[in-house]
Structures are given as C-alpha cells and as structure tokens.
Design a protein around this nucleic acid. Sequence first.
DNA 1: GTCAAATTGTTTGACGTCTAACAATATAAC
DNA 2: GTTATATTGTTAGACGTCAAACAATTTGAC
Lengths: 153, 153
Amino acid sequence: MTRKKTSADKGLDFGILPSLAGYQLRLAQIAIFRDFAAALGEFDVTPGLFGVIVIIDANPGLKQSELARAAHLDRSTVVSVIDNLERRGLVERRPADNDRRSNALVLTPDGVALLKKLKRRVGEHEKRLVEHLSEEERATLVTLLQKIFPEQR
Amino acid sequence: MTRKKTSADKGLDFGILPSLAGYQLRLAQIAIFRDFAAALGEFDVTPGLFGVIVIIDANPGLKQSELARAAHLDRSTVVSVIDNLERRGLVERRPADNDRRSNALVLTPDGVALLKKLKRRVGEHEKRLVEHLSEEERATLVTLLQKIFPEQR
DNA sequence: GTCAAATTGTTTGACGTCTAACAATATAAC
DNA sequence: GTTATATTGTTAGACGTCAAACAATTTGAC
C-alpha cells in the first residue's frame, strides 16, 4: 500500500489518473501551454493562433472553411479569429476568385514580420519543451503521438 | 522540394508545424478530447471534470483550493465546477473543521455511483487511445510525456 | 495580545471555443 | 434552364476557463 486515503499530509491521491495516457498527455499539454503563453504573452498569441498564422502564410489565399478544417476549428470560430487578426492588421480578407461567398486569406506585411518574430520565440519554447529529452527520445515521442487516433487527421 | 506553396490542390501546407513536438501533442490532445466527448457525452463529463471527480473521491474532505492546485484549475473555476456538480447532486460542500473559510468536498452516493460508470467508459476510451501502440510503446509514451516540463508538477 | 500579511471562497468581466440557425451563393439533378 | 441540395461566412447563445477584486477568516511578527 502506497498511501492511505485518509492521510492528512499534503500529498494528494490522484487515483487512477496517473495511469491514464490521456491524463499524462493532458498534464504535458497544460505545462506546454503555460510556457508558450509566458514566452509569447507579449504578442498575445496562443498555440492555436500561431498555427493559424503559419497555415495562412504557407497557403496564401486559402478560404476560411479550409483554414477551419486545417486548424481543427469550427467555421464560426474562424470568423472571430480572423476578425481578431484583421483588426490587428496581420491578415486581410480578399474576395476570392470564382466564388463570391468565400474570402481569400493573406498575411499582410505586418503579419509576415510578426510571424518571423513568433517563429524565433516558438523555437526557443520548443527547445525548452524537449530539454530533458535526447534527440532520439524526441523523435520517438513524435512518432508515438502520431499513432494516437491517426484516423482522425 | 515536397510541395509548392502555390499548389492549387487540396493538400495544404502546414509549414513548420508538423516538426514541432508541441503541435503534435496538441493534435493528439484534440483527437483524444473528441473521442472522450463521444464516449462520455451522454454523461456531460469532460476530461477535466472526470479528473475533478476522481480527485474528490480519492481525497474526501479536501478543500476547494487544494482541488484547484491538484486539478490545475483557478480557484474561481473550481467554484463554478463545484456549483455544477453540487447542482447535479454529485458533490457536497461541507463546513471544514478548524477553518470557517473552507469547504470540505465529498462525493455523494450518486457521485460515487456515477464515477463507477465513468471509469468503465474511460477505460474503454483509454483502450482506443493506445490501440495502435504496443504495451511497451504505451509505457514509453508515458515516460517521455513526464519528461516535459517536469518542474511544473 | 495586536495588527499586518496570507489564504479561502466568491463575484464580475473577459476570452476562446462550440452548436444551431440563417442568408447568400454555388453545385448537382433533372 | 429550373430547382433542390450543399457550401460559405456570419450571428446569437451557451459553456469552460482565467484574472482581478473583494470580504471573511486565519496565520505570523512583534
């Protein structure tokens, strides 16, 4: 027996949680988000927002719906995300060719410039993230992560 | 060169994202959340809420602040979480001994009964989660995850 | 013992996300 | 060609989370 339920000391009992891969992943995610926010807080950019900017940069002219699918966001969420980025002058909605319903998304020069700074910060963040992993372990981690619900991507 | 930026086909370019461990972790997390929601949607329980119930069960009488720290939630978030669980008759706030500021949290019999059902569902979910991993790979994954920002836990 | 500092639970307001509904437009069936 | 169906962007409403401020209470310094 490792720990009595009724123990009065500060060490809490986490029940089955630590044995669940989903829980460990969630813990890692929370820690990552914290470090990411601390590293990029000055720019008001979350991991999700960073992903959106990278995807627009790599696919100029893509439509909001395509962005939604790529970034695992709802179409309605993309509306407010792009509202946000457009208000900040980082992204532009242009009329799309051949489809008067759609907007073609492009990064503005300011957006491109910001992305450059963000990439440097994210690089440093990523370095801290894998600080206690060897390069081989890092590669293994990525491989294993990709084996989780691969049918969903 | 693997893909032209200006390609007009559906395959989007994800830029540096796939090379980031943080991004792969985020993708896995999103997929896990989806499956969890599908598996437990009927009970209106998220991974975080499940964790809260497990922790209360394993540490009856703990205070809201202790729960907040354990579950990585803000104190103010715990208020609404417990409001929710108390409204559903799953958790009870009792006056704590020796501290008139604090509440001692305990699961009601209904809460204990629900937890039992939840655990079965979560077990099935966890099984799907590691479906494409060998037992050894699963253990490795957990070990590697624990090496990410270990100082934060 | 008194009084400053810390802790606890709470409220309020903000933010990001989702779902459901809608109008405009495009596509497919016939 | 006309008409039904699907897709796109949007709004409105809900939910979960956080941070800041607050009153009640406890703890610690002296």
